[in-house]
Simulated assay, not measured.
Amino acid sequence: MNRAIFLFLSLLSGAVELGGILYAIELGLGLFAIIGIGLAYQLGNLVPNPIRINRALTLLSAAGAAVLLGLAHYQPDTYAYLFAGYALMAVAIQSLRSIQKENVGTTIKRSFRILGFLAAPFTGAAVSAGAALLLAVIAAAVPWTFERAKLIRPKVRFLSWVMIIHQIHYFSYAYFVIILLWQAVPSGSSIWVGIFFVLGWITYTGISHFLRAERYFRYFLGGHLFLSLVLLLMAWQIDNGPLVVALWIATGLGGGTVFCITKINSRYQELSKQDVVFSENIGHVLGVVLGMLLYLATQTISSTVYLAGGSAALAMLLMAAYKRTMNKVETV
Rank of each mutant, 00 (worst) to 15 (best):
R110C: 01
Y79L: 14
L22W: 08
I301A: 07
T205H: 06
N2K: 09
Y204H: 10
L290M: 13
F171E: 00
N281E: 12
N281S: 13
L57Y: 11
D77E: 14
F8P: 09
N103C: 02
F158E: 06
M316P: 00
L290P: 04
V104S: 06
L115S: 10
M326A: 03
P50Q: 10
I202S: 02
V127A: 04
R97L: 15
V332R: 05
V47E: 03
R148E: 15
L82D: 00
I37P: 04
I178R: 05
W144C: 13
P143Y: 15
L134C: 02
F6T: 15
N240W: 10
K109V: 07
S10D: 13
L253C: 04
S311Y: 00
A315Y: 10
A312T: 00
V198R: 06
T331C: 07
G252L: 04
S187H: 09
L294Q: 11
P121H: 01
S302A: 15
F259K: 11
A119Y: 04
I25C: 08
E26R: 13
L96P: 14
A90N: 06
E26W: 02
W248C: 03
L231W: 01
F176V: 12
L181Y: 12
L39F: 13
Y41N: 07
E26P: 08
L294K: 10
S266R: 14
I114F: 06
L232R: 00
L290K: 03
Q167L: 14
S10A: 06
V177Q: 06
F171H: 14
I152Q: 06
W192R: 11
H73M: 00
L60G: 07
S98W: 13
R110K: 06
A246C: 09
G223S: 11
I34E: 07
M292E: 14
L211P: 08
F210S: 04
V288W: 04
F259E: 04
R3W: 09
A313V: 03
L294E: 09
Y41D: 01
E214D: 15
L293D: 08
P50S: 00
R215T: 03
G70F: 10
Y86D: 01
G252C: 01
I108W: 00
A213S: 10
G309K: 06
P76G: 03
H166E: 12
G252K: 12
W192G: 03
T257L: 01
G130T: 02
F210I: 05
L317C: 05
G38N: 11
V288A: 05
Y204K: 06
A24G: 01
A119D: 02
M163K: 02
I5P: 08
L57C: 12
K150P: 10
